[in-house]
């Protein structure tokens, strides 16, 4: 369970990333955060694995306040939280298997990992994860030989190999075309249901949020302006979140093609 209690974050240059955030995310939920760019979606997500550090309030992950975590605790926290990025963040020159095994780094000792002595189970797990996102035949290809959608699937496999309790996805489909976007979201949803992994996704496409989310959190200017199940969401809700009327480019479309 993740609990935000009056969390605020001010960046060193004075901009307020988060303002008095209160939210509780229960285990197994599939939450989509929506909002315009700069609304604080990314800051919200990155606070959970402490890639950024909130400056006030308390943030509980599994009922422990993580805000004052340091190196050792932080590593343990990050080991149970997987993250997926907009630009896949794979090492382009390394092969797919090595990229996926990087997900095990938190579970592997420094010396072991430097000599690439991953345990047999870890390698098996990596292969299994690649199979789950249907990209196992590319196992020895270099990451830069894959298309964007394939690279994002590899990065999902990397997160699966980590065996996380939570998955954070920061705009996972923003660099992909509509059919591939739906494919990636479908995998995320499937993993959420099958492994009961709490999943928090940042999206700015309204239709995709509506299609995949259990619950939607709307953000504007660093504040939560809406929080509720999908059933309570209407077009008017989005107009309130965005502070303007809905436009064509707020929709990804292509749901039928996939």
């Amino acid at each position: 369970m993740i609990e935000f209690n009056n969390v605020g974050l001010v960046y060193p240059n004075g901009t307020e990333g988060l303002k008095n955030i209160n939210a509780t995310i229960k285990d197994g939920e599939f939450v989509v955060i929506v909002g315009l760019s700069g609304a604080g979606k990314s800051t919200f997500i990155r606070s959970i694995n402490r890639l950024v550090t909130p400056t006030s309030g308390s943030l509980l992950v599994d009922s422990e306040d993580i805000i004052n975590y340091h190196s050792g605790d932080l590593r343990k926290l990050r080991t149970k939280i997987g993250m997926i990025f907009q630009n896949y963040n794979l090492v382009k020159r390394s092969n797919v298997l090595k990229n996926v095994l990087a997900g095990r780094l938190g579970h592997t000792g420094t010396l072991r990992s430097i000599f690439s002595l991953f345990k047999k189970e870890d390698i098996g797990l990596a292969y299994e994860s690649l199979k789950r996102v249907n990209i196992d035949e590319k196992i020895y290809n270099r990451a830069d030989e894959l298309s964007g959608g394939q690279q994002q699937r590899v990065s999902i496999a990397r997160v699966l190999t980590q065996k996380p309790k939570y998955i954070l996805a920061d705009e996972p489909v923003a660099s992909l075309d509509p059919p591939t976007s739906h494919q990636v979201m479908t995998y995320l949803k499937k993993i959420n249901k099958e492994d009961n992994i709490t999943t928090i996704v940042n999206l700015h496409f309204i239709d995709m949020a509506m299609e995949y989310a259990d619950r939607i959190i709307g953000m504007r200017a660093g504040e939560i302006v809406f929080d509720g199940p999908v059933s309570e969401v209407s077009e008017k809700t989005f107009e309130e979140i965005y502070g303007r009327s809905i436009r064509e480019d707020d929709l990804r479309g292509g749901a039928d093609e996939s």
């Binding site: 963040n89 090492v91 390394s94 090595k98 990087a102 997900g103 780094l105 990992s113």
Partner: peptide, 30 residues
């Protein structure tokens, strides 16, 4: 080098040496 993979490895719990070895070295070695 592309700093994004390094961020991904930090996010998955890798320590400084692992991040350098897995994220930086493969990009710099050739």
């Amino acid at each position: 080098v592309d700093m994004n993979p390094l961020e991904a490895m930090r996010a998955s719990g890798g320590n400084v040496y692992q991040v350098i070895w897995y994220g930086l070295v493969p990009q710099v070695l050739p």
